[in-house]
Each structure stands twice: as C-alpha cells, then as structure tokens.
Write a protein that binds this DNA or RNA. Structure first.
Length: 739
DNA sequence: TATATATATAGCAAT
DNA sequence: TATATATATA
C-alpha cells in the first residue's frame, strides 16, 4: 500500500469508500446511501486522480445538480490539493451547458448576448405566443404547454421529431415549434434549451465533439439518479468511447421525476457500460440507529429498487417523537416550543431544521417563530431574483444588451408608468408584426410619432451606450435610478420599503460580483475588461442561481425548507411537519403511476436528514389555500416500526407521553373538541372531520360533504384505499362513526 | 390612459 | 392564497 502511506488523501476511508475512490479508469456505479460520505468519495477521487497523475484539471468533467453542491466540491477539493479549480469543468448541468454555449454561441446559432429564461419568463413568452396565435386558455392552458415543451426537450425531442396522436396534441406540437422560433428570434433560451442545444451541437459538429471527447478522460456525476434522458445522453456524448464514466447516486433518493428524472438511468448505465455490480456504500456516518431503522423500514415498501441497507456504528439513540396536533397552528406551536427547549439544552438553531412538503406550509410556522422571537431562515419560496422589482431592474439590463428580448421590453415599457398604456403597446405589437421585427425595432420606428415612446427609446438607448462604457455597478445603478424604477417604488403607497431594500441589495450584489468566478469560460471573443462581459455574466448568474442568494449567512438561525431543498443537507434535530394523507404523500402523487413510490423516496430523504433527533408531526385540520382540510396521518408514519416511535401529546408546552395505542392501524382515534365545534354542520348525521369506519374501505376521515335532495354526499379519505365519494342514502348502514 | 375594486380561477416539488 | 381579468371612474 505504497499510495496509502505516501498520501494523506486516503486515510480514514472505509474499505467501501476506498474501493470507489481508487477504482481504475473504468466505468463504475457507486450506490451511495444517505450519509455514506458520497461527496467525500467524489472529491477524494478527483484529488486522487490528479495527485497520481492519472488526470489533469483539464481532463476532468464533474457534474452536480445544484450550485451549492458544486461550490461544496470546489471548496473541499481546494482544501485537499492546491489546484486551480476554476480551470476544471466542475459545475451544474445547466451551468456547464451555459458555459459551453457562451463559448460556442456561433456554432449554436445564438447571438453573443443571448439571455436565459427562467420558469416565469418562459411562461410569459408562452402566454404571449398563445395570444398572438389566437388560441384561448381553454383550448391550451399555458402551464400545460409549458410542461409539454419542457418534457419534450428533456427527452431530447424537437417539435419536428414528434408525431401527434390526436388534434389537440397536434396543436401542442405546433405551439412548441412556434415557441422555439419565437425564442430564436428574440435571442433567448430556456433551461431545457441550454441542455438540448448543447447536446445537439455536440452531436452534429464532429470537430467540437471530438475535441471534447479527447479532452475529458474522466467524467464524474453526482446524484446520478436524478438525471433525465437528455442529461444522460449528454454525459455519454462527452465521455465518448474512452473516458471513465464514474456515476454516483442513490435510487432511493430519486425525487425529481416531475422534472424528467429517470431512475432507470442507473440500471441502463449498468447495462450499457457492462458494469456487473455497483459499488455499495452502506455505512452511514450521520444518523443514530432508530432513525436508520425508520428510514430502512419505510423505503423497504418500495418495489423497484437496486437494494441497499444502511447500517451504523452509532448507538440506537432516542426514539422518534410523533405528535398529532389539533390543527396547523397547534402543530407550529409545538415545534416552536420544542425548538426553544432544544436551544436551551445547548443546540444551536442552525443545527435544527423544519421540513415540509410544500412551500405553502411555511407560513404558519413562520408566524409562530416570529412571535416567539426565534431567528429563522427560509429557503425557497419566492427567491431574490424572482421578485418583481428585481426582475424589472434586470429587464432594463437585458433589453440594453439584447434589444430583441420582447419579454423584457413588455415587462418594463410601462413600469414605472410613463404613459404607454395597453393601446400604445398594441400599436407597437401590430407594427412589429407587420414589419416582422422585434418590438424594440418597432418602438424605435414609432418614436417619431409618439413622444412617450420616444422618451422610452431614448432611455434604453442611453443604457445600451453605457453598457459598453461604464462598469457593471454603474450600469446597474443606471437601470435602477435613471429608469425611474427606484422613484416609482418610493412614491408608491403601501409598504414598499422591502422592494427598495431589495433594489439596494441588487446594487450591492453588482458591486460585489466577480465575473471571473461566475463559471464563464474566458475566450478570445470576450475581453474580461469589457463591461459587456460583466453584464452578461451577471445576468446569467442571476438566472441560473436564482435561489442561491442568501442574506445573513453564518448567523445562528433555524432552517426552514421543503424536503426537496433539504436533499444533501443534515441537521442534529429535524422536524418533519405536515405528515398527512393528501399532503405527504401529496394527493397529486396518488393519481400518477409510481407516484407513491416517489413520495416514499421523498420521505426517505426527509428522515435521513436527521442525525440525532427526529420529530414527525401532523395536524388533524389545516388551512390550505383559504380552505379547511381534514386528513388522516400519513401512511408513511404507519410504515415505521412502532418500537422506534414515541407518541406525544401537546399540552400547555409540556409533553406527556400519550398512552400507547394497541391499535396499530390508527393510534390517533381521539378527536379534539375544537375540531368538532368547527366542523359541526350536520350532513345527514355526519360531520366534516369525523372518523368513520366502512366495512369495505376501512377507516377514513370525512373531508368534504354536500347536502342532497335526499341525504348527503360525503367525500371520505380512506388513506390507502384512496378518496371515495359516498351517498348516505346508500352507504349509511355501511358506515359507523368512530369518533 | 391609469388606477381601484370586484370576481373568477387555479393551486406541488425546482436547476 | 395569489393571480388574472373585467369593470368602473377619474
């Protein structure tokens, strides 16, 4: 073991990890369980390849899904070895494709200043296009078209490669084609287009393809289970015949099917690369035994798995605490009380997280935390770069560098209001259609006749000029102040201080921005001293890292996020909230094929975030979208062995272990008084929120009811049996009220 | 043309 | 709940 002793790199690795890290230059699939040291394996392998001279920084392609993960790897790598990480192609799929397209914009048929559409931008382009084509929302819903287009692109398919099975689908495909040509005219690309465009260039351009295939001899991919068809194809194309394809993933943590991820890529990989057996990392360094028992038990309910069982050398630890609250407010209060108690015992807030299935659930928690004066930080939700004032300010900049961006123009032509109303905009659009030009071009033509349009044109022309002359922060300031945007928010009534602060924050971000660190590759075409270079990098970073902007980092604050956002993170204490049927698993998932398995994997991810202490909480009643919902505890809680659970009840801030129920199926059969009074309207002898038993469907809860001419119609959630609608006229004697 | 108010309508996870 | 659209009125 010469290498071992000569280098500190490999010390401390267990034998599974060592096998993975020092795997020869051959394809490998590493099946890495949660908390098994996956990131460590990846970074150590890269360092080892570099140190032993098997690879150079130029010959490595390393891909992650989030910017956070990419930065983490950069950081750890530079701690291991003094390498120039910037020269390495290490980044997210979208970040690397963006870099590629900026480098090869000519081959890609894109303008040098092309801009990126985020989901919101994409939706407005689609709406605008549908209006232009005179297609109403009822015939094609903008959101469904958006989903359709993205799904096709993620499968690597252009409109021309699709065939329709019915007239509606034919229209969707026509819209897809129209959308693509609109984007092309306006010089904008959406997220999926970044990938597809890069892929197609590599596929069609022999020179470029062989250049990159010769260059990369090691291709490493993290979170492989979340790759979609196109991403996998892109990786294979870049790897070529001779590169070593090193894939790390966990099929049990595949939670992005809704955006095209295919777990099947893992088995496909094994087959296509002739890998007989994956390398399994099953030693968990994160959680105590009880938590792992729960995670293993839950995930065992899934049928399609590669198979893996986590083990730990830590003790069993505490039991997992379970609480069912009367409603969402009480649930939040319980969490707050527990957080306070744990903090008093010496646990830092930053070591605790509250997780939930959907962002809408954060509100109640936030209020309770705010009242209690606990510092907290929310991830996700409305991100910094998605706020309207930020998007408005950036739209000025986008228009300045790329005047064909109609979306940007429409966004701010009358923000702040400058007398260009709906009528004037229609005129501009008509003129643009007539002459087949961009809106900007049409506006400049109309400026002679309309003084208000003329003023707007002058404003933008001035910004355009500045974009070639002055520095990024100065241009940003011009976009915010000269446009009148800041003044607009200052004089608007209502609480606009937040928006003003955000605009100032945006200015700070522009001052602090370092284009060299933005993952932009230097090319002879770009002069790093050219302000345009900085503006383009800044705008792209804003689109690609919309969520990463974080104020007050390093502060001791409780972490709030969705389970999706929590993937890859770990905390000493985790509160998993809203564990109710219909919410988690979500009701949408139940209608989809294999939807439940995906939700279960999500549950698995959630459980395995916790190191020492885990709480599972749920509410009998909660307010969602302004309506009261009733639900049973999530089936996933039932899937955890009772031996590792401890049921609690919340009473005046003190916890009393609830008498353990002998009924395995429903430990929560006592109903609260409050819930009853709030749902006391009578429906032929039944009430909302009541637990009932049906001879065929088992135990369920009444979630909705309507009066009928005779009797009433009840909507009952029977958990595993699904949601059923029953008429009391027929079903009355089959139903017994049990609470 | 700009603004205020009323009413309908869809609603999950995120690079 | 948030957002879009319609309608009224200055």
């Amino acid at each position: 073991m010469e290498i071992l002793s000569s280098s500190g790199l490999l010390t401390g690795l267990n034998s599974e990890q060592l096998t993975a890290v020092t795997w020869p230059a051959q394809p490998a699939l590493v099946l890495a369980g949660a908390g098994s040291g996956k990131t460590r394996v990846l970074t150590t392998r890269i360092a080892w390849l570099l140190q032993t001279g098997q690879a150079s920084v130029h010959s490595i392609l390393a891909v992650t899904f989030t910017n956070k993960a990419a930065k983490e790897m950069q950081l750890r790598l530079s701690a291991l070895l003094p390498v120039s990480v910037r020269a390495m192609w290490l980044g997210t799929f979208h970040g690397l494709c963006h870099r590629f397209l900026r480098l090869h914009y000519q081959e890609a048929g894109l303008p040098k200043t092309f801009q990126i559409l985020d989901m919101g931008d994409q939706l407005s382009v689609i709406k605008r296009m549908l209006k232009q084509l005179n297609i109403s929302d009822e015939i094609i819903a903008p959101r469904s078209l958006q989903g359709f287009i993205n799904a096709q692109k993620e499968n690597g398919l252009r409109a021309s490669q699709l065939s329709a099975r019915d007239p509606h689908e034919r229209q969707m495909i026509e819209c897809y084609a129209a959308y693509d040509s609109l984007c092309q005219n306006e010089g904008v690309v959406d997220f999926a287009e970044l990938m597809l465009r890069s892929y197609q260039i590599l596929q069609n351009n022999d020179v470029l393809r062989s250049h990159y295939q010769n260059r990369f001899n090691h291709v490493l991919i993290d979170e492989f289970q979340d790759t979609n068809k196109l991403q996998y194809a892109w990786l294979k194309l870049l790897a070529g015949k001779q590169a070593a394809f090193f894939a790390v993933g966990d099929d049990d943590q595949s939670i992005y099917r809704f955006r095209g991820a295919e777990v099947a890529n893992m088995t496909r990989f094994l087959h296509e690369f002739n890998v007989s057996e994956p390398i399994r990392l099953e030693q968990n360094y994160r959680s105590v035994g009880n938590i792992l028992t729960a995670a293993n038990a839950v995930i065992a309910h899934n049928a399609s798995r590669l198979g893996k069982n986590l083990r730990t050398e830590a003790g069993t630890g505490e039991k997992i605490r379970v609480l069912q609250a009367i409603n969402d407010i009480e649930e939040a209060q319980f969490v707050v009380d527990e957080v306070k108690a744990l903090h008093r015992e010496g646990l830092d807030y930053i070591q605790m997280a509250i997780l939930y299935r959907s962002n809408a659930q954060s509100r109640v928690l936030e209020q309770a935390l705010f009242r209690a004066g606990i510092p907290y930080k929310i991830y996700g939700g409305l991100r910094f770069y998605e706020r309207q004032e930020i998007k408005n300010a950036l739209a000025y900049l986008r228009l300045a560098v790329n005047p064909d961006d109609d979306n940007a123009l429409l966004r701010i032509i009358n923000v702040p209001t400058r007398g260009i109303g709906a009528r004037s905009i229609e005129n501009i659009q008509a003129a643009a259609n007539e002459a087949n030009t961009s809106l900007w071009q049409a506006a400049t033509n109309l400026a002679a006749k309309n003084s208000k349009i003329a003023a707007f044109v002058r404003l933008i022309e001035n910004l355009q000029l500045q974009a070639t002359q002055i520095s990024l922060p100065e241009i940003m300031a011009a976009a915010i102040y000269d446009s009148g945007l800041m003044e607009y928010y200052r004089t608007q009534k209502g609480e606009q201080q937040e928006r003003i602060n955000n605009l100032e924050e945006l200015l700070n971000a522009a001052v602090a921005f370092k284009p060299q660190e933005s993952g932009f590759e230097f090319d002879s075409d770009y002069d790093p001293n050219d302000p345009l270079f900085a503006v383009l990098s800044f705008l792209s970073t804003a689109s690609l890292e919309a969520g990463e902007h974080q104020a007050g980092q390093g502060e001791d604050a409780l972490q709030l996020m969705t389970v999706h956002a929590a993937k890859g993170l770990e905390f000493d204490g985790v509160f998993l909230t809203g564990l109710e049927e219909g919410l988690f698993p979500s009701e949408y998932s139940m209608a989809e094929r294999d939807g439940l398995e995906e939700e279960r994997r999500l549950m698995y991810v959630a459980i395995t975030r916790a190191r020492k202490r885990l709480y599972l909480t749920m509410a009998e009643q909660r307010l969602l979208h302004g309506q009261t919902h009733f639900a049973l505890p999530s089936r996933f809680v039932d899937e955890i062995p009772e031996a590792v659970l401890q049921y609690l009840s919340a009473h005046k801030n003190s916890l009393i272990a609830r008498q353990q129920s002998t009924q395995r199926t429903n430990p929560f059969h006592s109903r609260s008084k409050l819930a009853e009074t709030q749902a006391s309207q009578d429906f032929d002898g039944f009430q909302l929120g009541q637990n009932v038993h049906h001879e065929r469907f088992g135990t369920g809860v009444i979630i909705d009811a309507t009066h009928k001419a005779e009797g009433a119609r009840l909507t009952i959630n029977f958990g595993k049996q699904g949601i059923k609608e029953l008429d009391t006229v027929f079903a009355k004697d089959k139903l017994t009220i049990i609470s």
